[in-house]
């Protein structure tokens, strides 16, 4: 099934507790199902809840490093706006950035003197890195799909549009293996909405 020859490097960024790791698991296993060699790297432990989290996923013919270097990411998917900015250095020029429109102010903003970047700053920083930039109303779409927590799967749906070598059935099959049965319908809806919104 693997028709692409070049490596695909994905960086997922979010806040602990947002479901970043679920999406990274799905994305990695979709790569395996599509016939790629796959590696995935993430850091857990140390009560990452509430902290900045990121996952690196690589698909290719033969993958060595589990980590993606500066300028090597083809796709940056952020589940939170500020977190998109934190990893922008990893993106190759012209790479794809998909940002979910959720803003979670860090404690240093809510109880200290730090300032959350405004929309203009966000667009400027990301716009310098690439023209292929999309903001997805992930929260609104997830609510429409039936549960705001499925915002992560909305973004996976948006990403899947870029990976048309992978048939829709493969995405849905793998999502079905990783999402609890009672939330499956909501997540499938969320995935489809992410695809269509894009």
């Amino acid at each position: 099934m693997n028709t692409g020859t070049r490596d695909r490097n994905f960086v997922l960024a979010g806040v602990g507790g947002q479901g970043t790791l679920l999406v990274s698991n799905v994305l990695a296993h979709v790569g395996v199902r599509a016939g790629y060699d796959v590696k995935k790297a993430e850091v857990h432990g140390m009560a990452q809840r509430g902290g900045s989290v990121s996952s690196h996923i690589r698909w290719g013919a033969k993958i060595h490093s589990p980590l993606i270097g500066l300028g090597e990411a083809d796709y940056l998917v952020a589940f939170e706006v500020l977190e998109a900015l934190r990893y922008v250095e990893l993106l190759r020029p012209g790479g794809t950035v998909i940002v979910g429109e959720m803003r979670i102010p860090p404690l240093s903003v809510s109880s200290g003197g730090d300032v959350y970047p405004d929309d203009e700053t966000v667009r400027r920083i990301l716009g310098q890195a690439t023209e292929d930039l999309s903001f997805v109303p992930s929260v609104r779409l997830a609510k429409d799909a039936g549960n705001v927590r499925a915002h992560n799967i909305v973004l996976l749906g948006a990403l899947s549009v870029h990976l048309d070598q992978v048939p829709l059935e493969v995405w849905l099959e793998v999502i079905g293996e990783w999402v609890p049965k009672r939330y499956l319908e909501v997540n499938v809806n969320a995935f489809r909405m992410g695809r269509e919104a894009y």
Partner: peptide, 20 residues
């Protein structure tokens, strides 16, 4: 041989892990 990339975003608020 180094891949091209943009500069890091400066001055972002840190987001360390914290008491839940």
């Amino acid at each position: 041989t180094a891949p091209a990339h943009g500069p890091p975003a400066q001055g972002l608020p840190a987001r360390p892990p914290l008491l839940c």
